[in-house]
Design a protein around this nucleic acid. Structure first.
Lengths: 107, 107
DNA sequence: TATCTTTGGACAAAATTTGTCCTGAATGGC
DNA sequence: GCCATTCAGGACAAATTTTGTCCAAAGATA
């Protein structure tokens, strides 16, 4: 996958993809069929991409769609923790709940 | 805190609080000022409580509001992972992103 | 049977999110 | 300086999602 720097935000990674390709917001926006202003906002993490848009981005930059989607999901979780000023240990609790709910569903 | 079983869902914990108190949905709903049907849905994790409602629940059952809120947040994260069928390692990535974004904000 | 509790569908109201348009600041070339 | 282009960011309508209530029906209890 062409995304280089890890553990930066989804937006930053997207910007890096674009800059590595040497393209402007307008050019990329045209290709993935959105308004350049929306793309700029997504790069600054002020708007969230839809799944459909993530697919278009992955296709355009030829990166793995599933990995890109997981980058986005981990971003969402990170921002939720920051927004709520929650303790990081809720991630551990969440992990245990995933296992628990899975057992529930297999009954 | 009076919540006993850990790593069950928010709804199950709420139901346990209610049953431990020996109360019906209607009785509790009246006290926390919502429709009994909504309370039932929250107990079955079919609706999410608002923060205001979490406060009312914490007050009514005399449990720690912040802990209850974090129970809810970890639920939300768990359900997101299940909904998206995401790999659990995104939690680790999210944790690293939280640290990263915090450093960003201190610049 | 009669009563009370719980479940769950339907739906309007409320809240949130998305995407676009537009303005202005910044940069670079000429 | 002036023009063209890029990017930032506010405002706002449209679209989507979520919330909360009402109601009917199922289940339990006596």
């Amino acid at each position: 996958m062409a995304i280089v720097k890890k553990h930066t935000t989804f937006g930053e990674q997207l910007r890096q993809l674009r800059e590595t390709a040497g393209m402007t917001l307008r050019e990329v926006a045209e290709n993935i069929e959105i308004d350049p202003s929306l793309l700029a906002k997504i790069e600054r993490n002020q708007r969230q991409p839809t799944k459909h848009l993530i697919k278009n981005i992955a296709d355009f930059f030829e990166v793995n769609e599933k990995e890109l989607l997981e980058e986005f999901l981990s971003d969402q979780i990170a921002y939720k923790i920051l927004d709520e000023e929650a303790d990081l240990n809720i991630l551990k609790v969440a992990e245990e709940k995933v296992a628990y709910i899975k057992t529930l569903r297999n009954e």
